[in-house]
Design a protein around this nucleic acid. Structure first.
Lengths: 163, 163
DNA sequence: TATTGTTATACTCTATAACTATA
DNA sequence: TATAGTTATAGAGTATAACAATA
């Protein structure tokens, strides 16, 4: 069993550098945590399914919100419209989602996941959640719930539709 | 006064998309929170000081760890050696840090922040922390401390020196 | 033989600008 | 006049490969 490093305060998890001044910079702490989750995503979903983080997120959101538009996705993920178009293009080319002009507003696309796409989203989510659970066993279930709740609170501080 | 949105569970902070399946994907929640902190960084430090997030972090870590090497920075931030070289180049060109070959190991650089660099790091940190505190007033001081602690715990789950 | 740092190169990701179609 | 989506283009960000110097 690998030695479990106790979280030493004010020292970078790798490299052993003092980081007291960065301790209360939330953006830095998020970035450090993201190093871990990005690695986990890559290993458990990114490589196995040849999927990028944004592609996974967009696919999952479409599966969960059939009939949604690209504009809404762009707002939800804070990415530009052209970027969403490119992501949707790739997902469509792989047969995971389908575009269809909306009846209500003929400008907008009504997006839907195909059966293949839904299946993939489900499998990928399972793989990621399992991978995270295994790797983050230092956190109790309660701690993980609190963490998610607090992160959501931070996310909700986003200035309303600043674009 | 802008209406304070109550954190609705399972709905994206912007765009109002259902996200139940992503609720326990920590990487997704981190990314959503990072949208906020990235914006705060850009507004309070990035634009005013013409500083990128990585540059700020590297400068601050150097200021706090005089004599440190580039290799250690690369490990701490999980970036490649060539990338660190480029970042250090820019910081040095602006007169914020100085390189000097180490006496112990003549391969490695002993990095130090100049007085100008230390001053800038201090000002930038203050601006970021103030900006975050103002924008994240939905979180109590206690909640912010817990959040930082839990994020640090996640960050410490990084596989030891996987390179 | 491994490690530190550098250079050169290429790729991935994302944004801005300009346009079309619809509202 | 504003919004949804697309195309074309450009830039930021980061990595891989190959090398030099030192350990």
């Amino acid at each position: 069993m690998p030695a479990k490093r106790a979280p030493r305060p004010d020292v970078t998890p790798a490299g052993q550098l003092a980081e007291a001044k960065l301790h209360f910079v939330l953006g830095y702490q998020l970035a450090q945590a993201a190093i871990v989750t990005n690695g986990l995503f890559a290993r458990h979903a990114g490589k196995p399914f040849a999927l990028r983080p944004v592609e996974y997120t967009v696919l999952t959101l479409i599966a969960e919100n059939p009939g949604g538009s690209q504009a809404r996705l762009a707002r939800a993920l804070a990415v530009t419209a052209p970027h969403i178009t490119a992501i949707i293009d790739r997902l469509e080319a792989r047969g995971w989602i389908a575009r269809g002009r909306s009846a209500d507003d003929r400008r907008s696309q009504a997006l839907q996941a195909t059966q293949l796409g839904e299946e993939l989203a489900r499998k990928a989510t399972q793989a990621i959640v399992d991978g995270e659970r295994a790797a983050l066993s230092t956190l109790s279930a309660g701690e993980q719930m609190i963490l998610v709740e607090l992160l959501h609170k931070v996310a909700c501080s986003r200035p309303a539709a600043a674009g």
